[in-house]
Design a protein around this nucleic acid. Structure first.
Lengths: 345, 345
DNA sequence: AGTATATGATGTAACGTTACATCAAAACAC
DNA sequence: GTGTTTTGATGTAACGTTACATCATATACT
């Protein structure tokens, strides 16, 4: 009487067995139209809600998925989460989000607890500095796992990402075509296959144009850190006029730094971001950025997950989503006579 | 042999019964130091991870908490999520996040599925337009529920929020003291007790200064929507020079609108935000804002949740966190001779 | 020594669900 | 009218865990 209504409550109310109720609710087995109605009616009147835990435990099939992301505060990530959720909800899954805040220790704690929760799957943006131990543990213990955005070099998991190398390649070529002579790469934390790809695309473009002086400056992916990094970078290499940034947050931060130095972004220096988050269109100046479709990531992720579920022995697959460059006011031809042509007051 | 190791696997490996293993792992009952070591050792070697589902089902005590938030993309919300997580993790809880995206239908689906997941608690930022039916259903079906940030007028749940009325009151008085003659309130979607409080604080300040012309303009809490709303508001009421915004996102959007109109924020018009998110310090111009401590919200939330859990029959309680005004460049004295004193050509 | 109590471990049942086997009755075959 | 199949429903056991009762020993008290 007290407590949540169970399948038994429904059974009693409908005057049938619990097996019958279960079958009706799951839509399986052979049930007459009449009993079906009776049961559904009874379920409604007693206000029945299925206990997913019990269901998952008995059937060995969980419809809960964990999405372990590196930093939910990054607007691009927030958009991706929305896309993932939408796509997987259509297939009856519920996606629970956890934020590792790029802290490997926290990530490990979460992984342990999540897996202990009996998840049906893990969607994972690995934290910066994820240890091999963690990876091994996940391989051994997690059910279906798909990484997204950040890929491990040895590709042990299915992966959905974006064509990072091509993205930075496009961005760099864009600045080269505008006439920039010295172009730096800014942002990205520690090692990470995706970051390698982005730097790779940048360097390849430089080489293609017979430039041989790549400059890579890593920094935390916050506006504050990027602002300082941009200032430092300019002090050390005042001849650099083009900046390829690892994400829009870094790009935005960099423009703040240049503003502080009295440099006009889009004229004195050009900045290109990555992700094309909504804020970039509204930034002052609007940011040129490598665009990806977050919803597309969600869809591909859902598809990859379901494919793996359907065939657990299929070879590991990597899906890359296309990117394209959105040109806006933050990039333009370098000032005549180079950056030193400008009077700095 | 195959599949995840269970308590039975551990029991066999340690040469004891499953009951003993359970007691060791839970730290309850009377167990000799020797068996305790044996069991822990065995658990480690077979790589045991507790099945929280089974544990929760049998014990009736879930250590999973659902945090249903209205818009994870809002940076302030993201900060709150971080704070909540940290505080509750210390008490052994895992907080799963779901984003209703302020869509009542989506929220309802999530609530049903979450509750079906057998959560130990629900932390809830209700979506705009949450129906009374939904509230009733949650009251009937959810375990411990604490609302945060947005409170229902009839206060049926424990609540952790901020002193909204005082916040807007401070903000409005600030603009009055600077000499603004006409001040409007911008932002907020539909009805909501918290919004009422904010508008209340604004109106009270006006009345206290013998102003009798409140102007309230609601809009979606995105920069794009706020930008347009600010432009429209200025067209309709060009004499308004002070703007109290419902959140920093709206405030930032408004400054974009004013920039488009050729108005200088901090001189021609003054804008005050709410939340004091990190971006506001970096915005151009930096935004005056009502500051709250997101971590504090997390702590209070944890405390409120645990208190309710300890005593399910305690009277409903509402916790309000203090606010303070951070003055920055987006607010200043109005231009001499009013806004029309500026040449717009 | 004989009873009482503390200690340390085990056995059993149950949480709510579903897989699978079973069973009665109706429908069909010849 | 007997045998076979189909239909529709039920009964039983199990998922992995923990609550609680039980049961041997060991230790303490008179």
């Amino acid at each position: 009487m007290s407590g949540r209504p169970t399948i038994r409550t429904v059974a009693r109310a409908a005057g049938v067995s619990t097996s019958t109720v279960s079958q009706v609710l799951r839509g399986s087995g052979r049930i007459s139209e009449e009993t079906r109605r009776k049961v559904l009616q009874a379920a409604k009147t007693v206000n029945y809600v299925q206990d997913r835990r019990a269901s998952a435990m008995r059937s060995g099939q969980s419809r809960d998925i964990g999405l372990l992301i590196n930093k939910i505060g990054n607007p691009f990530n927030a958009e991706v989460v929305g896309g993932v959720n939408e796509s997987l909800e259509e297939h009856g899954y519920l996606v629970y989000v956890l934020d590792s805040q790029d802290d490997p220790a926290r990530q490990e704690r979460y992984l342990h607890t999540m897996i202990g929760g009996g998840l049906g799957g893990l969607l994972w943006v690995p934290a910066i500095g994820t240890s091999q131990d963690t990876v091994d543990w996940v391989m051994a213990n997690s059910p279906i796992t798909v990484t997204l955005l950040r890929q491990f070099a040895d590709q042990v998991f299915d992966h959905v990402g974006i064509d990072s190398a091509y993205g930075t390649n496009l961005a760099t070529k864009h600045l080269i075509e505008l006439g920039h002579q010295r172009i730096a790469f800014l942002g990205g934390e520690l090692e990470n296959a995706t970051l390698d790809q982005r730097i790779g695309g940048y360097v390849t473009a430089l080489i293609g144009a017979k430039y041989n002086n790549p400059i890579v400056r890593k920094c935390d992916e916050t506006k504050t850190a990027a602002k300082q990094a941009a200032i430092d970078l300019h002090r050390e290499h005042p001849d650099v006029t083009g900046f390829i940034c690892n994400c829009d947050v870094v790009a935005a931060g960099a423009t703040l730094g240049f503003a502080e130095l009295g440099l006009e972004v889009g004229k004195d220096v050009s900045v290109v971001g990555f992700d094309d988050i909504e804020d970039s269109r509204l930034w002052v100046p609007p940011l040129t950025s490598v665009a990806v479709d977050p919803k597309g990531i969600g869809q591909q992720l859902a598809e990859t997950f379901l494919a793996r579920k359907a065939n657990i022995d299929a070879p590991v697959r990597t899906v890359s989503l296309p990117v394209r460059l959105k040109t806006r006011a933050s990039s333009g031809p370098p000032a005549q006579g180079g950056i030193n042509g400008k009077s700095n007051g």
